[in-house]
Design a protein around this nucleic acid. Structure first.
Length: 829
RNA sequence: GCCAUGGUGGCGGAAUGGUAUACGCGCGCGACUCAAAAUCGCGUUCCCGUAAGGGAUUGAGGGUUCAAGUCCCUCCCAUGGCACCA
C-alpha cells in the first residue's frame, strides 16, 4: 500500500532526528567556510508566533539552507529581544512579574519556532533580559562612558504621556509615540545620551559599500541628513551675546535683511528680559508651544512670528537685522537661529506677512521674471542659473557656479567659516521604565555621576518594585537597590534609576551569539572569564554577518544603532571591522484585509491552524509562493490548496513511480532513463531553481518545480538519481519533505548535507527548437525546426508556412532572424 | 509638495527589447462515486467563428523599433519613505 503524505508524522520524525544528531549545531571554531545567516530576533510577546514571524524566518531559513548545500558552514542563531514595554504593561495589568511572563513566553516561542523546522542553533540562543546578557549591555554603557561617547544632560526630551517614558527621536518620528501612537510632548529631564553624531560622517560614508536595499540606504542618508554650509558668528546689539548662524545657501548672504529664532530657543528669554517685548513674546511662545503639542504643525497655514525688539549687529555692513521669533524655525537643527533673505520661500512669505523689508543678491536671466522678482512679487530661490549682483566682486556669476568662491570670500572677509551639519541627533538611551537593563551609574552625595565598576556587573535589576508608570522610574521605589548602592559605595550614594532603551540591547546581539563562553555563563560565578565582549578570533571568523533578514521598519533605528555600536567597538579595540551586516534583506509586509496585522485592528491571522492542518513545509512554501519575497502581500488562504496538491502529488510520484531496487546515492552522474525532452526540462529546472533561490525569488523557484512535476507525472518510472536530484532541489524549500523523499530514494545521511545539484549546460538545449514567424510585427506561424538548421534554411521554411505566404505575397522588404527565436518579415505594402 | 517603487486575466502573480498571461487559485465540462469530498482528464485573457483563423489586450495618451509589459516623453492612480532642517 503506498503511503500518502502525512505532515505531522513526517515533520516530527525529522525534527527529532535533526535534534538527536545535532545537525544544526555549528562548531564555530572549526568552521572552514563560515556563513553567518541572521534574522531579526523576536520580542517574546504573550501572543503566539504570527504570520509576520513566519514570513521573515522561514524563507530566510530556506535561503540559508541553500547556502549550506553550497558547502557553507552556516550558523543560524536565534534569540529573544526580551526587555521592553509590553511585559511591563502586562505586569501592571495582571501583577505577573515581567521576568516570569517573559520566561514563559520565551519557552512557548521556542517550541513554536522548533516546529517551524529552521536550522536554528539553539545552543547559542540569547535572551537580552537575563543578567548574563545585560551584563554586557551594561559593559557597553561603561565603554561608551569611559570613551566619552556617553554624556549626561538636561534637555527637552520627547515624552510619551501614555507610556510615561522618554523616546529617542527615532521613536517619535512624526510627533507620536512609535509604540502607542500618543502625541509626544516635550519635557525637560536629565538624561543619558550616546554620541552617535560623532559617527555621522562614517555612518554615511560606509553606506556606499554595503549590499543593502537602496531604499534603506537612502532612508539612512536622509536620517543622517548631512548638509554643508557656512557658520556665521554674529553679535546681538546692546547685549554682550555672540551667536552662530548656519546657512547652507550662502551665495545670497548679502540679501539677508532679518533674523529668525525658534520659539523654544534658550536665547529667547535673554533677548526680551526686562524689555517691553517680554510679555507679548512670552505669550506668543506659549501659544506656539500649545499649538505644536496639539497636533502637527503646518508650515503653510501656521507661519507666525513676533518681533523681539533686538537686532543682529551690522554683520556685513548691510545694516542691522531685526530678530524675529518664527514658528517655522527648528530649535535643534543648526543653531536654531537663521538669517533670512528674499531668496528663500519661507523667509520671503514671512517677510511679506509681517512687512519686513527685503533686498536681492541675485536675479534671474529671464527679463520678464526678473521684473517680477525685482518687484518682490515672487521669491527667487536656489536657482542654478540665477545671476549674482552682490557682492560686487562676484557679480555676474551664476548661483550654481559661485558657491565655492562665495564661501572662500566669506572666509577671507572673516564673516564665517565652512561647516557641516547633520540632522542626526545623539541617541537618548535613558528610559524611566522597569523592564530594561539598569544604567550602571551611581551618584555621590553631591549628585555627581560615577560609573559602576566592572566587577559589580551585572548590576542587577532589583525585584522589589511597583511597575505602575508614575513618570518616575520604578527603580526609584526599590529599597534593595538603594541599600545595595549604599553598601557598596557608601552612605548617601544613590543609584541611577533609569534603565536603557531596548535598542541598546539589540545593538550588539550579533556578537553575543558568538561569545566564546556561550550563554551558559553562570552569574554567581565570580570569575566570569570573558574579559571582553567577543573572542577576537571568533569575531574575525564570523563578522560581518553575511546576511541579515528582517523588517524594513528598522531602517532608521535598529539598523543605524547597530552600525554605530560596531564602529564604536572597533575604535575601542574590541572588534576588527566597522560594519556588522554585509547584506540586508527586508521581507515584505503581510497584510490582512489591506491593513497591517495588529491586535487593535483585530485582523491578526494565526499560523497555528494552518500549520496543524497542512504542516510546516506546506505553510512555508505557500508563503513563499504567493509572490516576490520583498513585496509581501495580503494574506489569503485560498491558494494553500495548490501547495497541498503539489506536495501530495510529489509524494505520490515517489511512492508509485520511483525506480525500485538499485537504490543508493549515485550523485548527479548518469541521469538516464528519461526522454531527452524531459532530461532537458530537468536540467533547466536545476538551473532555474538555483538561480532563483540565490536571488530570494522563491515564488518562481517553486513554480519551476511544479512545472517539472507536471512533466514527470507523464513518465512511467522515475530513475533513483532523478528522484534524488528532485529531493535536493526541494531541500531548502521543504526541509522535512525533502528528507523523507531522500530517505525513500535510499540516500544516506541528511539531505541538508548533500551538495546542491549541478546542471549540464549541454542538456539545456533540445535537438529541435521552436521558431516563430512574424510578418509586420504580427505573429503568423510557429514551426519546429532542427536545432542545427541554418539561418537560410529557417528563413526558407518560414516563407513556406501556409499562414505566412498570404501575408508576404506582395514581396518582402526586410528579413530578420533572431537566433533560435524568431523570423520577422517586413512585407512590401 | 518632494523622492522611490509599482499598475499585466475573476484572483496571487510570470515574462535577458523577441510566442504576453508561465505556475497556482478559482471557475466550467467530463471520468470515478448511490452521493459528496478527494483524485484524475479536458478547457479557461476578451470579442467574432463549429473549426481553421481573425481582431483586441499589460493604468491613459504619444514616441523610438522589423518587434515594446519591458526603452523615451506627458498624464492618471496606488503603495512606501521624506516633508518648517535655513
Amino acid at each position: 500500500m503506498p503511503r500518502s503524505y502525512d505532515p505531522s508524522t513526517i515533520e516530527s520524525k525529522w525534527q527529532k532526528r535533526w535534534e538527536d544528531a545535532g545537525v544544526y549545531k555549528t562548531d564555530l571554531k572549526k568552521a572552514k567556510d563560515p556563513y553567518y545567516g541572521m534574522m531579526m530576533f523576536p520580542y517574546p510577546s504573550g501572543d503566539r508566533l504570527h504570520i509576520g514571524h513566519w514570513y521573515s524566518y522561514a524563507p530566510a531559513d530556506s535561503y540559508y539552507r541553500f547556502m549550506r548545500m553550497h558547502g557553507k558552514d552556516v550558523f543560524e542563531p536565534m534569540g529573544f529581544d526580551a526587555f521592553g514595554l509590553p511585559a511591563e504593561n502586562h505586569a501592571v495589568k495582571t501583577g505577573v512579574h515581567p521576568d516570569a511572563s517573559t520566561r514563559k513566553n520565551v519557552d512557548t516561542m521556542i517550541l513554536q519556532l522548533k516546529r517551524m523546522g529552521c536550522m536554528f542553533d539553539w545552543s547559542r540562543m540569547v535572551n537580552t533580559s537575563t543578567p548574563e546578557y545585560y551584563r554586557w549591555t551594561q559593559w557597553l554603557f561603561l565603554q561608551m562612558y569611559s570613551h566619552k561617547l556617553c554624556y549626561h544632560k538636561e534637555a527637552n526630551v520627547n515624552f510619551c504621556p501614555s507610556c510615561q517614558t522618554v523616546l529617542a527621536n527615532e521613536q517619535a518620528q512624526d510627533g507620536t509615540c512609535e509604540r502607542c501612537g500618543t502625541t509626544v510632548v516635550q519635557k525637560p529631564l536629565t538624561q543619558w545620551f550616546w554620541k552617535i553624531t560623532q559617527y555621522a560622517e562614517k555612518l554615511l560614508k560606509n553606506l556606499d559599500g554595503l549590499d543593502w536595499p537602496e531604499k534603506t540606504k537612502t532612508m539612512q542618508r536622509n536620517w543622517i541628513g548631512r548638509s554643508e554650509g557656512v557658520k556665521f558668528k554674529e553679535k546681538i546689539k546692546d547685549l554682550n551675546i555672540e551667536v552662530e548662524v548656519f546657512d547652507t545657501v550662502p551665495q545670497t548672504f548679502l540679501a539677508q535683511t532679518f533674523t529668525v529664532i525658534a520659539p523654544e530657543h534658550s536665547l529667547v528669554e535673554k533677548l526680551i528680559q526686562g524689555t517691553s517685548h517680554e510679555k507679548p513674546v512670552q505669550e506668543f511662545v506659549e501659544y506656539i508651544r500649545k499649538k505644536k503639542a496639539g497636533n502637527r504643525f503646518n508650515i503653510q497655514t501656521d507661519m507666525e512670528g513676533i518681533f523681539t525688539g533686538r537686532y543682529i549687529e551690522n554683520p556685513f555692513g548691510t545694516g542691522d537685522l531685526p530678530i524675529w521669533i518664527a514658528s517655522y524655525v527648528v530649535a535643534d537643527y543648526g543653531t536654531g537661529i537663521v538669517n533670512c533673505s528674499a531668496h528663500d520661500e519661507r523667509d520671503f512669505a514671512f517677510a511679506k506677512k509681517y512687512g519686513i523689508p527685503l533686498k536681492l543678491a541675485m536675479v534671474p536671466p529671464d527679463a520678464e521674471l526678473r521684473a517680477k522678482v525685482e518687484n518682490f512679487e515672487v521669491a527667487y530661490c536656489k536657482a542654478p542659473d540665477g545671476i549674482l549682483i552682490d557682492p560686487p566682486e562676484l557679480a555676474g556669476k551664476t548661483w550654481h557656479h559661485a558657491r565655492n568662491e562665495i564661501i572662500d570670500y566669506i572666509e577671507e572677509e572673516g564673516f564665517g567659516t565652512r561647516t557641516v551639519h547633520f540632522r542626526l541627533r545623539d541617541w537618548l538611551v535613558s528610559r524611566q521604565r522597569y523592564w530594561g537593563a539598569p544604567i550602571p551609574i551611581v551618584y555621590d552625595p553631591e549628585g555627581n555621576p560615577h560609573p559602576v565598576p566592572e566587577e559589580h556587573l551585572p548590576w542587577l535589576l532589583p525585584t522589589d518594585v511597583e511597575f505602575k508608570p508614575t513618570g518616575k522610574s520604578p527603580l526609584y521605589y526599590s529599597k534593595e537597590f538603594r541599600e545595595r548602592t549604599e553598601k557598596i559605595f557608601g552612605k548617601g550614594w544613590t543609584p541611577e534609576f533609569d534603565t536603557m532603551d531596548t535598542f541598546v540591547c539589540s545593538s550588539f546581539y550579533y556578537l553575543m551569539y558568538l561569545q566564546s563562553e556561550g550563554h551558559g555563563m553562570k552569574m554567581e560565578s565570580k570569575k566570569m572569564k570573558a574579559e571582553s565582549l567577543v573572542d577576537p578570533h571568533m569575531e574575525k571568523t564570523w563578522m560581518p554577518a553575511d546576511c541579515y533578514v528582517g523588517g524594513a521598519e528598522h531602517a532608521c533605528m535598529h539598523l543605524i544603532y547597530a552600525r554605530f555600536v560596531m564602529m564604536a567597538l572597533k575604535d575601542f579595540g574590541f572588534v576588527s571591522i566597522e560594519e556588522p551586516f554585509k547584506k540586508v534583506v527586508h521581507q515584505g509586509t503581510i497584510t490582512h484585509k489591506g491593513a497591517k496585522m495588529s491586535k487593535s485592528r483585530g485582523n491578526v491571522v494565526s499560523p497555528d491552524a494552518f500549520v496543524d492542518r497542512h504542516g510546516s513545509d506546506v505553510f512555508r512554501m505557500y508563503l513563499m509562493f504567493t509572490g516576490p519575497y520583498t513585496d509581501g502581500g495580503d494574506w489569503n488562504d485560498a491558494g494553500i490548496k495548490g501547495i497541498d496538491r503539489f506536495v501530495f502529488r510529489l509524494f505520490r510520484l515517489f511512492e508509485e513511480k520511483l525506480e525500485k531496487g538499485n537504490k543508493g546515492d549515485k550523485g548527479n552522474k548518469g541521469l538516464k532513463g528519461l526522454p531527452a525532452a524531459t532530461m532537458s526540462k530537468l536540467h533547466a529546472t536545476i538551473k532555474k531553481v538555483g538561480d532563483d533561490i540565490a536571488q530570494l525569488h522563491f515564488n518562481t523557484a517553486l513554480s519551476a518545480l511544479m512545472s517539472l512535476l507536471n512533466e514527470l507525472e507523464k513518465e512511467e518510472t522515475i530513475p533513483v538519481d532523478v528522484g534524488q536530484t528532485i529531493a535536493k532541489l526541494l531541500a531548502p524549500l521543504a526541509p522535512h519533505l525533502a528528507e523523507e523523499l531522500w530517505e525513500m530514494t535510499g540516500g544516506t545521511g541528511f539531505i541538508i548535507d548533500q551538495h546542491w545539484p549541478a546542471f549540464d549546460p549541454k542538456l539545456l538545449k533540445s535537438d529541435t527548437m521552436t521558431i516563430v514567424v512574424q510578418v509586420n510585427g504580427k505573429l503568423r506561424a510557429s514551426m519546429e525546426v532542427d536545432a542545427k538548421a541554418s539561418k537560410e534554411e529557417i528563413i526558407a521554411a518560414a516563407k513556406e508556412e501556409e499562414n505566412v505566404k498570404k501575408y508576404i505575397a506582395g514581396g518582402i522588404k526586410k528579413e530578420i532572424y533572431v537566433q533560435g527565436k524568431l523570423v520577422s518579415f517586413v512585407a512590401e505594402s
